[in-house]
Design a binder for these strands. Structure first.
Length: 913
RNA sequence: GCCCGGAUGGUGGAAUGGUAGACACGCAGGACUUAAAAUCCUGUGACCAUUGCGGUUGUGCGGGUUCAAGUCCCGCUCCGGGUACCA
């Protein structure tokens, strides 16, 4: 311990009045010297490998508790990170004390765009930046005293790691989804239909390609000219800008790797039911998968052979279909458009394609469209209905064509109104308002709810729905459609193929070679990993290709027959590494297998997974998809990766702005009488709560907090702020509060005169066992804020009494230690223990100490609490009534009335007058 | 628009349908100190009363269920997050 780093308020003042002291004297101080304590125990844990996880299969109680690993950005750790990390750390430490074999690892999601952009700007290789950032993150995380097993640290950019990411890609490529058995299977087991076999090798190859979970094809993609990369749909924001950089994206056609995640849609949806996840997150995933049931119905084009297939969830409204709409991209448009309409239609298609690039999501926009001149025939009544083109119909969903039922669909209604198309009501609405009902039946208002069918029968076709309700109508018409062979019942999903390649350097290279003859082959597993070439200068290739296109030596290959080939220049998206990292922690150094099967069987699934809600859909859905494929292939033993999921809330911070809206740095603020002033100008400023950001000048740096208050205070404060899932503002004053608590605990237990031997005071004993019970329940339920408050209550009780027995102190230290592990170890050590507290058995609450003979019984009159009486526990109700009614204070309220008395045993008495 | 959250003192928050405001911050008063800091003690929802007891009111708004509602039900308002024409 050196004197110089002491910088907390407490010690700054201490040194003002103290003569210079030698370092070894500080350990004798009665004050809580967190800087020294934390350093000491971090070194102890490191030296003794305290948190090294053994693959000890003899302990049947395992617990795998995982954090969402971070992307190590150049900015270093944010105070948001330690929130989730502390929560999992408390659980990990608690479970160890409960005798569980705990797996609690940490690693780095280190591929990513910022390092690449930095490289393009400065010439520093991403590997260098990444290494530095990881070092910073590791140092910062270690200073928080988190009990990770650092032997298991992984890094997605490590060839020893991404070798297996590439390996999984090969598995995906070689897997097809067997609808019959509802699982993914080896591509070699794919049955080839006879007609395909007859058509020759090329047809066979194409057929197989069409079944693989990973495929290479032309895809219309979003391209960000600024980042010079392809973006996934979900990375493009509503206003048509790129999520990462804020610049506009454009549409392009490019050969891309795609993954057929919709094949797993049903299982991804169904298996959500059994997961212990927040209901909101499950709902978001359900919505994202977007399952709907309906029917695909064929409409003939009048006077042509062509057929327009539509998908509808409301086949029951076929009688109300008065026109059809094709998506502008639908190839049928060119075929069916009448010659005299061609110009107009083409102009519309051009305009809408342009619009989609510029402003495709302007919601306030009016619906647009154009008539093709063609008519379709409604199969239920053979009526001719016009076919339009409009961009409110999307090519990517369903069949890219709809039957429009303006009377019962808001969008169709809006469109029909605008273009004067027929609106035919076929469902008499379930409404009591007579005027509204009339409006709907007349086609002047849209009705999407239930009701009774009208105008829905055709004798010639032998179909009637009249009088039925919606549910029966759908069933009836679907049967009829199938019998008539004009359509089929169909399930549809919003979930689409996953665009799985990026035009970047800093990502996993695909183990793929494109040969001159047009064939594609994948590298053999034995040749992995395919490393990234060591480019001197990283800059995008021509035509938006990845920088890898510049790596000539790496790029071109020749096989043993002299055939020339070119490696895939795309790399995998950042999701790739994070899709399976939880599996690698199980056996991170295995070079012969992705992991040892026995280890996987022992450790999986992840018992508790904590991270931010921003990954609610994508990361968690992609991971589940990969996991299910691996499960089908027999590589993992569980069908789901994450048993229990919990989302921590965001930590915000106060920020200050002047009346003009200018932001004032938080350290320039002084407070007077609940008002805030700029201490330099004296101007009054407004306090707001906002996300931490450089522009608001309200970023809290964890390093500063650790320096000023200690890691234990940081941990404890983040847990004490409020519920883990809540969004909450950071307040430095609150950190001071928990520091005060830790210092009081230290002063109490570190002073021998406070510690007694022998019998404990019964009140303290009861308080202690209340604490044990509360803390245990709260940790199990992740209610850390109330667990901390329970510890404070206990300590307040003890401090009032002034003394504590040695045994009570030991129990309290145990409970404190998962929350404030450095102080826990220190106090444990001060009570004479020679070993770490990390594996001491967790205390058990005992009923006998919790019981009391009497209790303060609140008595309310007409539901309003009026006074309390001391009553024996379990007193017969008649006795309770007698005592309560005879109380002077009760008489005052009752007067002469005869009251009714409700007694909730050992809880409350309510007198009703 | 739709979906999901949320609204409790000056502040962060606590509360199996059963004493609203635990715990903490802040603030006020006191002790210690030459003084301050730190520490310790006391008080602290609002309003009325205050010599003592005490009383009224109170969990975004309006209704309801109940002996009893922050908690359950119905109808709103506002705030936050997600999402974007999915037929």
């Amino acid at each position: 311990m050196t004197a110089s780093p002491l910088s907390s308020d407490i010690f700054a003042n201490f040194f003002l009045i103290s003569p210079p002291i030698s370092p070894n004297l500080i350990t004798d101080m009665k004050d809580y010297n967190f800087t020294e304590i934390e350093k000491k125990w971090q070194e102890y844990w490191e030296k003794h490998e305290t948190f090294r996880t053994a693959d000890d299969f003899s302990n049947p109680n395992k617990f795998y508790v995982l954090d969402m690993y971070p992307y190590p950005s150049g900015a270093g750790l944010h105070v948001g990170h330690p929130e989730g990390y502390t929560a999992t750390d408390i659980v990990a430490r608690y479970k160890r004390m409960k005798g569980f074999n705990v797996l609690h690892p940490m690693g780095w999601d280190a591929f990513g765009l910022p390092a690449e952009q930095y490289a393009i700007q400065t010439g520093t290789h991403p590997a260098v930046t990444t290494r530095q950032n990881c070092d910073t993150f590791r140092r910062q995380i270690k200073e928080l005293g988190l009990s990770y097993d650092w032997e298991r640290e992984i890094n997605t950019t490590d060839p020893g790691y991404f070798k297996w990411t590439q390996w999984i890609f090969i598995k995906l490529y070689n897997t097809w989804y067997d609808q019959k058995t509802d699982r993914g299977r080896d591509i070699n087991e794919l049955p080839i239909p006879l007609d395909v076999l007859k058509a020759g090798d090329e047809a066979r190859r194409k057929y197989i390609e069409s079944k693989r979970l990973a495929y290479y094809d032309d895809a219309q993609i979003w391209y960000c000219p600024s980042c010079r990369i392809v973006c996934a749909n979900e990375e493009v924001l509503n206003d048509g800008t790129h999520e990462k950089c804020g610049n506009r994206v454009v549409r392009r056609n490019l050969k891309q790797w795609m993954l057929r995640i919709p094949q797993y849609a049903e299982r991804l949806l169904r298996d959500l039911d059994n997961l212990d996840w927040p209901e909101g997150i499950k709902e978001m995933q359900r919505n994202w998968i977007g399952r709907s049931t309906g029917a695909e119905v064929d409409f003939k084009v009048d006077g042509k052979k062509d057929i327009i297939s539509v998908y509808t969830t409301r086949p029951d409204t076929l009688f109300g279909a008065t026109y059809m709409v094709l998506a502008p991209e639908n190839p049928l448009v060119a075929i069916i458009t009448a010659p005299d309409k061609k110009k107009e239609v083409e102009a519309y298609i051009n305009a809408s394609s342009l619009k989609s690039e510029l402003d495709r999501t302007d919601l306030s926009k009016e619906k647009t469209g154009v008539f093709t001149g063609a008519y379709a025939v409604n199969p239920v009544n053979n009526k001719k209905i016009p076919v339009w083109v409009a961009d409110y119909v999307l090519m990517g969903y369903g069949t890219g064509a709809i039957m429009a039922v303006p009377a019962h669909d808001d969008r169709d209604f809006e469109f029909a109104k605008k273009f004067g198309l027929e609106i035919r009501c076929i469902l008499s609405p379930d409404v009591t308002d007579r005027e509204q009902k009339e409006r709907i039946i007349a086609g002047n208002e849209c009705w999407t709810g239930d009701g009774e069918y009208i105008n829905s029968s055709d004798n010639e076709q032998g179909i009637t729905l009249n009088g039925l309700s919606m549910e029966k109508g759908i069933a009836t018409i679907t049967n009829w459609i199938e019998q008539k062979n004009i359509g089929i019942h169909r399930v549809n999903y919003k979930l689409r193929d996953w665009l799985f390649s990026r035009q970047r350097y800093w990502g996993e290279p695909f183990p793929v070679i494109h040969w001159d003859d047009g064939r594609i082959t994948l590298m053999d597993e034995s040749e992995l990993p395919l490393r990234l070439p060591d480019l001197e200068v990283i800059e995008p290739g021509e035509n938006g290709e990845s920088p890898l296109a510049n790596a000539t030596e790496w790029l071109y290959v020749t096989d043993k027959d002299g055939r020339r080939g070119r490696r895939e220049t795309n790399t995998m998206p950042q999701w790739a590494g994070s899709c399976w990292y939880y599996l690698r922690f199980i056996d991170p150094k295995n070079d012969d297998a992705i992991f040892d099967k026995a280890k996987e069987k022992y450790w999986m699934p992840v018992d508790l997974y904590i991270g931010g809600a921003e990954h609610a859909v994508l990361h968690l859905l992609y991971s589940r998809f990969w996991h299910k494929v691996l499960f089908d292939l027999g590589i993992v033993s569980t069908s789901e990766p994450f048993l229990k999921l919990f989302n921590q809330g965001m930590i915000l911070a106060f920020a200050y702005e002047t009346p003009a809206g200018a932001k004032v740095s938080s350290d320039q603020i002084s407070e007077r009488d609940g008002k805030y002033f700029n201490s330099e100008t004296g101007e009054e400023v407004k306090q707001i709560v906002a996300k931490m950001s450089k522009s608001l000048k309200n970023v809290i740096n964890p390093d500063d907090v650790v320096k000023n208050y200690g890691a234990d205070s940081l941990r404890l404060y983040e847990m004490f702020m409020g519920p883990l899932e809540a969004t909450k503002p950071w307040d430095d004053k609150g950190v001071k509060g928990v520091l005060g608590f830790l210092a009081r605990a230290y002063r109490l237990i570190a002073s021998e005169e406070n510690i007694t031997r022998g019998e404990e005071d019964p009140e303290i004993l009861r308080s202690l066992h209340q604490l044990i019970r509360k803390a245990t329940d709260d940790i199990e339920n992740l209610h850390f804020n109330t667990a901390v408050s329970a510890m404070m209550i206990f300590l307040n009780t003890v401090i009032k009494k002034g003394k504590i027995t040695h045994d009570t102190a030991l129990t309290f230290i145990k409970i404190l230690s998962p929350f404030a592990p450095h102080l826990g170890e220190e106090l444990w050590h001060l009570t004479g223990k020679k070993y770490t507290i990390a594996f001491e058995p967790w205390p058990q609450a005992e009923e006998k100490y919790l019981r009391t003979d009497t209790f303060e019984c609140p008595v309310s009159v007409n539901g309003k609490m009026r006074f309390k009486v001391e009553l024996p526990i379990d007193l017969p109700q008649e006795e309770v009534k007698r005592i309560v009614l005879s109380d002077e204070r009760a008489k005052k309220w009752i007067g002469t009335a005869t009251p009714k008395v409700i007694i909730v045993p050992n809880r409350i008495v309510n007198i009703v007058i």
